[in-house]
Design a protein around this nucleic acid. Sequence first.
RNA 1: CGGGGCGUGGCUCAGCCUGGUAGAGCGUUCGGUUCGGGACCGAAAGGUCGGCGGUCCAAAUCCGCCCGCCCCGACCA
Length: 572
Amino acid sequence: MKFTQTFIPTLKDAPKDAEIISHKLLFRAGLIRKLSSGIYSYLPLGLRSIQKISNIIREGMSTWGAREVLLPLVLQKDLWEESGRWQAYGKELLRFQDRHEKWFTLGPTHEEAIVDLVRNDVQSYKQLPLNLYQIAPKFRDEIRPRFGLMRGREFIMKDGYSFDMDEEQANKTYQRMYDAYNWIFKQCGLNFRAVEADTGTIGGKFSHEFMVLANTGEEAIVSCEACGYAANVEKAEIGYPDSGTGTAGEESPAPALVETPGKHTVEEVSGFLKVRSSDIIKTMIVKADDTFVAALVRGDRELNPIKLKNALNANEVQLATDADCVGISGAHAGSIGPVGLKIKIIADREIAAMRNAVAGANQDDHHYTGITPGKDFQPALIADIRNAVAGDQCPHCFKPLGITRGIEVGHIFKLGTKYSLKMHAEFLDESGVSKPFVMGCYGIGVGRTLAASIEQNNDNDGIIFPITIAPYEIELIAINMKDKDISDTAEAVYREMKDRGFDIIYDDRDISPGMKLKDADLLGFPVRIVIGKKFKNEGVVEIKVRKTGEVITSTTQALVEKITALRKSLLP
RNA sequence: CGGGGCGUGGCUCAGCCUGGUAGAGCGUUCGGUUCGGGACCGAAAGGUCGGCGGUCCAAAUCCGCCCGCCCCGACCA
């Protein structure tokens, strides 16, 4: 492709609404343009990159047994009433009427559509397993779209759905998709982790998020360098090699009541009493379903509501209101403590090991010092209920854990029979018994993958594309188009490379060299060939690798050979 | 939905407080000079100042309503 024959509107300045680096660069490099909030057009280079990612996905899906379909974007209300989601889905579901005043929605996800397809045409276990996917635009009317392609309203997504005859088969399918996803993101040249994720309200054990590691990521993830364990911070367990219970026989002083006027937060109390925040017991009263319990974590830790919920076997937990706190403990939040508290106490595992600690005294503006768990109060339950922090031990190998940020680009999920039961999607098994399909669903944000890649691979000059998803692999630059020697050679090189099947774009614009070089860096093609001064003087062209900055020279004759070798070295 | 901010040529922004008939840089067009890191000289095009209404002799500027966009939060997965 030649620059003069395509459309690459690059910009020196980013528009002011671009906040994060990928958004700025996508815009400046002329890959996308905004049409309205959260809704973008893909320009030729952006589209090409999207298509390359899509094709990698297709290859991965195909290899691991999924077949491509294309489902409608516009879906009618009755299907969504069957699944119950017409009511359950909030305002994110865009609803509208046609001329006959029938209600429709733009699909934010396609469980209903796929279940309807499969239930009509699959009746026998002999037709299973079945795994179908599509790559198509989706629409979610996000409350607040932001960060360009990272969180749009209209976005391109790969969504896949599997249908299996039983749990065992479904687990195998899940594992295949897990393998496929690892292959796909590796092939896209991304530094990513598959992390265990909380399954939310649907339940079940199986859910993994695929996170691209980047500082600007919206999610915190916990990972272990040593054994590869990785999990969403909501879910991450903390390892305790010894049982973590108290050690008997240690000297522990008697509790003493001290005044702490106006000191409520951990920092205020620790500053006032001159103790470390890790010597304070933080007590929070929470309402778990219909009962109140007191949750204890060390002053320097954060309570993890999901872990707490699981430990208590509750459906829902929330912090108690201040009025409830006063009613239960006799003090306002900030002076509450476990000593003498009448409700059930659940303590984080670290609490059990504390000695001579500070805790609220259950009367306003007072704390106790010299508190020792097990002596001065008895927790009913000791469990891991706090967020993991860097340096905590891995639950598998007990090496220190690290915390990084990530961008969720893929999510695989075992759905079970939730949709097949509601929508009566059943098949006959070997013994002629009617059974609901066991389903799984598997998503990849295609646009978000592009944005995440840029978020991870850039420098001050612009994008640094991995070769597999770059709009073009090679850019050819003729420094001076008016110099016939140079422009003729460039034209010849371009034709030959193109004829030999190289994925090459040629900047044939008659503009200053500075602009071409700046644009080349901004656009981030992995390999750049320059024909200029060195060609005039020494008869050689320059090959530069965008990622490393490494430059080699070559005669035009040896170019094909050198580029072939270089290209190979850049593949994942 | 709550809080904050913005809207002036394709992009970035000044002018608004203190009303007097619209500016800069980049980009674009034409001519010329240049040709290895967003070159230089000269000429030019391009704006109902987001929209509607009000105040005033006079509104980009003051007031009201509306629209659009962005940030923070809550919400959702």
